[in-house]
Amino acid sequence: AEDTGVRVELAEEDDGRKASIALKLWVEDSRKLKGKYKDSGAIEFTFDIEREVPEGVAQEMVESGFFHESDAKIVGKSIRDRVALIKWRRERTVSSA
């Protein structure tokens, strides 16, 4: 995935079954963000990979004051990339089983 400066990782091991997964997001390189970034640490949240949209979570982070509006896109993309990887891994596990 592209280096967006925002890192998203699984906050717990993926059992491959739950639609709701725990993710952890933090800023690795604030120079890649357009807006002013307040260093608030790692943000942990649950995400439903079947029903939720990464950009929606990014928007909620903006509304909560974690990121500037101009960075909603980059945050959404970072979550989207990680979710795509998790889905890909799950599909691969299913097809190899």
């Binding site: 690795e28 943000i43 509304e63």
Partner: peptide, 27 residues
Amino acid sequence: NTATQVVTSAGRRFIVSPVPESRLKEQ
């Protein structure tokens, strides 16, 4: 541990905790 919780108007919970130094890129 200094984790804090933020609940959004949509009901989502964000748990904020410090990032370990080792996980940060050198700036």
